[in-house]
Amino acid sequence: MLAGIVSAVLAALVFGGVAAPAQADPLPQLATIGSTLYSFGDASLCAGAIDLALEAAPHHPGHVLAHVTPRGYLGGPCGNQVKLGWVGSAGLQTRDVYVYADAAPGETITTDLWVGTGPAKVMAIAWPIRSTFAEWYLLVP
């Protein structure tokens, strides 16, 4: 009987103690002009597209995760500096993220933006400025 209790406790600890992956809080947002930058590359003027997505950082109020993914470049390999700017209760800030890809999509780069809680605006443009821009209005948890 004692062995049964011990094995039940061990099973509960092993299977019940496994933490679920962190889930992001909902991030109400409105992307008024889309979330893709259409751009010419850094030096060779190759054309490409860069996708951006925003989500609330799990268990970090006031933080937004920006996921920047180059979709690929015609005439690549190529890259772009993506300039992210934001304003929220934490003030006005910027961050640069460099993306690089061949003709196929490249690696997603995730960066943590300290925006602050409440209403905020995030903007993005590829640098040098030979691209469209994107913007989001957010309510950051």
Rank of each mutant, 00 (worst) to 15 (best):
15 F>Q: 02
89 S>I: 12
68 V>K: 01
108 T>E: 15
14 V>T: 13
100 Y>N: 03
47 A>I: 11
39 S>I: 03
32 T>C: 09
17 G>E: 14
81 Q>P: 03
29 Q>F: 02
33 I>F: 10
99 V>N: 09
118 G>L: 13
97 V>H: 06
30 L>W: 04
24 A>V: 11
105 P>F: 02
135 E>H: 04
70 P>A: 02
101 A>T: 10
116 G>C: 04
81 Q>C: 12
121 K>W: 14
47 A>C: 12
71 R>S: 06
28 P>K: 11
18 V>F: 04
18 V>W: 06
44 S>H: 15
74 L>H: 11
139 L>Y: 13
70 P>T: 06
25 D>Q: 03
60 H>M: 09
117 T>S: 15
105 P>T: 01
68 V>S: 04
66 A>M: 04
123 M>W: 08
114 W>V: 06
11 A>F: 09
123 M>P: 00
43 A>E: 08
138 L>E: 09
69 T>C: 06
5 I>C: 06
23 Q>M: 06
132 T>Q: 05
48 G>A: 04
109 I>V: 09
32 T>W: 02
27 L>M: 14
63 H>Q: 11
96 D>M: 13
28 P>H: 02
76 G>Q: 07
66 A>V: 07
32 T>A: 15
134 A>Q: 01
114 W>K: 05
16 G>L: 06
25 D>W: 07
39 S>C: 07
57 A>T: 08
12 A>C: 12
46 C>D: 14
37 L>Q: 00
76 G>V: 07
121 K>C: 14
131 S>K: 08
110 T>P: 11
140 V>A: 04
133 F>N: 08
117 T>H: 01
74 L>Y: 11
59 H>D: 14
47 A>D: 11
133 F>W: 06
109 I>C: 07
131 S>C: 09
43 A>R: 07
138 L>D: 10
133 F>R: 04
97 V>G: 01
28 P>T: 02
49 A>N: 03
5 I>L: 15
138 L>K: 00
33 I>H: 12
96 D>T: 14
134 A>D: 00
74 L>M: 12
3 A>V: 14
